[in-house]
């Protein structure tokens, strides 16, 4: 029995030795024609998808962002008067460039985007509820708009070798004549972009 144990241990070490590369790990070679998609959350929420071919990158995203008025009731407090918000929805398509760097994937892009939203103006009136605490609804004049803007995005993606999803951070902007918006989002990518910079074992 003791001899079999030594045989098993010997087999284990021989397999481990065989698994070790004889030479240094090959440089990461970008995969071609891979898809990815996921979600992002920060000072806005988004759903995104992308296509990567060599270093060329195509991105599509739809993002919703909301924010408090500059002044007036509802401009302070996290949960207080939650119903008073400016908001914007964006649908955008971008093209850009990606580059592996130290085990991460850097990327940036620009494109064209459609935005629709409302921007709160002056405070008008409050309807008070009968609740003991809170329950107020504040009404503002607002500007409703639709516009074509210039979406920008720059981000970094951290692949997790043992798991398929990758995590990232992205800075997004939409420059348009109605209401330009800037977002910092933490992103989750569920597809293959992370594999593009992880060497195959």
């Amino acid at each position: 029995m003791k001899r079999y144990c030594f045989l098993l241990i010997g087999l284990f070490f021989s397999q481990a030795a065989r698994a070790q590369p004889a030479s240094p790990a090959p440089a990461a070679t970008p995969l071609s024609g891979i898809w990815d998609g996921g979600v992002g959350i920060g000072n806005g929420i988004e759903i995104h998808g992308g296509y990567l071919s060599n270093h060329f990158l195509l991105l599509g995203r739809t993002r919703y962002k909301w924010w408090r008025p500059d002044s007036g009731p509802g401009s302070t407090g996290l949960f207080r008067q939650f119903n008073t918000r400016s908001r914007q929805t964006e649908v955008a398509a971008l093209a850009g460039y990606s580059m592996p760097l130290s085990g991460t994937l850097l990327y940036a892009g620009a494109g064209v985007g459609y935005v629709t939203g409302r921007q709160l103006g002056e405070y008008r009136y409050t309807l008070r509820g009968n609740a003991l605490i809170g329950g107020d609804t504040h009404y503002y004049a607002y500007r409703r708009y639709q516009a074509i803007g210039l979406p920008l995005e720059a981000g970094i993606l951290f692949p997790a070798p043992k798991f398929k999803p990758s995590f990232g951070v992205t800075f997004q902007a939409n420059l348009n004549p109605e209401q330009s918006v800037f977002c910092l989002l933490f992103t989750l990518w569920s597809g293959q972009f992370g594999r593009s910079i992880v060497p195959a074992l």
Binding site: V112, G113, R124, Y125, L127, A141, R143, R144, I148, N176
Partner: peptide
């Protein structure tokens, strides 16, 4: 041009409530 263009813009005043508010 790169910064885009407006498609529609509407200034909106909130509606007046109808009936009794908060009874």
């Amino acid at each position: 041009i790169a910064a885009g263009c407006s498609l529609t813009t509407t200034e909106v005043e909130p509606e007046l409530p109808t009936g009794r508010v908060s009874d």
